[in-house]
Design a protein around this nucleic acid. Structure first.
Lengths: 219, 219
DNA sequence: CATGAATGTTGACAATGCAAACATAGATGT
DNA sequence: ACATCTATGTTTGCATTGTCAACATTCATG
């Protein structure tokens, strides 16, 4: 159990936990995903047990197997939800600053880093490679691709408008995404970078964002 | 067991496995680290069991507890060894191109990405944040810091020589490291980037490296 | 209203991390 | 040389975990 234990009361009070249980849950699939997301952030990916998720969702320990092939499959669903959110945020950044690719990419970067630091375990799950590639569902793949495409559109529009340079769009996207993603993983992974406030996070994102921008701008 | 099973014979033939076992192993500490490194790459971080490591090292399943507090402590030792290698490679990149910070940083980046793609699981262990921060040993922290300092020296020398710009050295280091590290994690994490050959890896590193350099160079 | 397909539950099993009690052997002091 | 101490392994045992098989309940559909 270690010292990471979350006592039963705490879980009962959690948002996605149920007290009375009719035999049929109603929407167990999404309840499990929600419960897994919650517990994931509390306990960390390694210490997260399927049985705990079940307990939190108010269901017996074998119930998930009617909806997920595996524990890994449940985690894939969690990851997929994360990619959905990330993709949506990038789309927001794009539509929020129409015709201004620089602000679009900066805003997307800020949002990316901010979301990741607010959901560190989910981010590690998505990018830490805790899922072996063979396990990655086709669905998950498509979702991740969609998030990538949002960035691609920003960069491609910017290059068409003559704001960004680079030999081809993919190279620029790769560089930009690498920088933002790298900062994110450094914040999450190493004990070295430990921003205390959301403001600090944003400052870090801006430092990296500006440097990356000056390498990307057409000249 | 899943399909990741490594049969006993395979493990017996592995380099760090022993057949005859005198009661006292001799150098169990480093044998365990070696065995863990090997099995880590074969089975992945999640599927790696301490008992398997023991079997591979030719000792009983409780032997490691004389040398490591935990399973986590053993993994920390593996991570530490990784940081040592990474730090050494960066130092090499620096000494190999004396007085040429651009080549130093490019070479360091190439080496970083190359090493990581050759040791994906070890890299994930080091940066994927599979170790909760509280568990991170002081020793590990110092080692990671030393690797960081190598990059810092390259950038700082380059700024003194007027080759690199930026407001302060830390900002530049952060940006450069983020880009390289981000590319690395994207290669390891997402199923999207899947370079087939070491040459491909180097090309990707150069694409990102060039972009980052043009954002970092003084102008 | 019966029947079958979905959906949950219970019980069992092997694998795992860990700890306590026990065993061995190489070093140390006399 | 001998007894003893301590470092290092081993065995046994336990709680937790993921997964499966057998059983139970509900709901929809004829």
């Amino acid at each position: 159990m270690l010292d990471l234990a979350v006592d039963a009361d705490m879980m009962k009070n959690s948002r996605h936990c149920r007290r009375e249980r009719p035999y049929h849950h109603g929407d167990l699939y999404s309840s499990l995903v929600k419960a897994a997301e919650e517990l994931l952030e509390i306990k960390g990916a390694n210490a997260l047990s399927l049985r705990e998720v079940c307990q939190c969702a108010g269901v017996s320990h074998a119930a998930p197997y009617r909806h997920f092939r595996d524990k890994a499959a449940l985690m894939e669903a969690v990851a997929k939800a994360g990619f959905d959110q990330l993709g949506a945020m990038t789309r927001d950044a794009r539509t929020k600053h129409p015709g201004d690719p620089v602000m679009q990419i900066l805003d997307a970067g800020r949002a990316y880093v901010a979301w990741a630091t607010e959901n560190p375990e989910r981010t590690r799950l998505m990018f830490g490679g805790m899922m072996k590639s063979e396990d990655i569902d086709e669905d998950l793949h498509r979702t991740a691709e969609a998030a990538y495409d949002e960035i691609y559109r920003i960069i491609d529009d910017g290059r068409s408008a003559g704001v960004f340079g680079g030999r081809d769009t993919d190279s620029v996207v790769l560089s930009a995404w690498s920088a933002v993603h790298g900062l994110t993983m450094l914040i999450l992974g190493s004990g070295k970078l430990t921003p205390d406030s959301p403001g600090d996070v944003r400052d870090l994102a801006d430092v990296v964002g500006e440097t990356m921008l000056s390498g990307i701008r057409s000249r």
